[in-house]
Amino acid sequence: MKAVTVISGTGVPLKRSDVDTDQIIPAEWLKQVERTGFEKGLFATWRDDRDFVLNQEQYQGASVLVAGPAFGVGSSREHAVWAIQQGGFDAVIAPSFSDIFRNNCTKNGLVPVVLPESTVEQIWAAIEADPQTDITVDVERLVVEVPAAGIVAQFPMDAPTQHRFLNGLDDIGLTMAHVGDIDAFESSRPAWLP
């Protein structure tokens, strides 16, 4: 997992609430044996609609998904996070997230940013006015900045989670922080064990 300090890019206004993981990545995509290629399944059903926001030319290349409240509800599938990341996004801004989705985000390096609904709406307006509006998510200072709209907003993140992002530690990375303990344990394992 890559370390995340500052994300800077354009955004996509996904003006819907209760976006569930079945919409993010439909179940038929779970049969894959790979961990990659899920961008093709990202919002697969909605993308059939030519006017769906992710299909719009002006939002291509965005790295921040700006969505409505209760984002990521439903099935616990981690694939939803993979799909969003593989779709090019490094952060999701929303007024609220489902617990499991948010947890899955932190395990995979996708930054979940909780901002007040009014702030989210301001960002939507700014992006819709100018799709090239620059959005900065600073994980070090826990601040979102949208200079064009005059937005400087703090967002919450507990210290251990922030530590994970800043150091690029997934669960395995966290465990490997104890690699000295693992080495020591291995060297003391009884000889009768393989």
Partner: peptide, 9 residues
């Protein structure tokens, strides 16, 4: 996790 670390939290 186990493949990578031979451990499990």
């Amino acid at each position: 996790h186990v493949l990578a670390t031979q451990t499990l939290p």
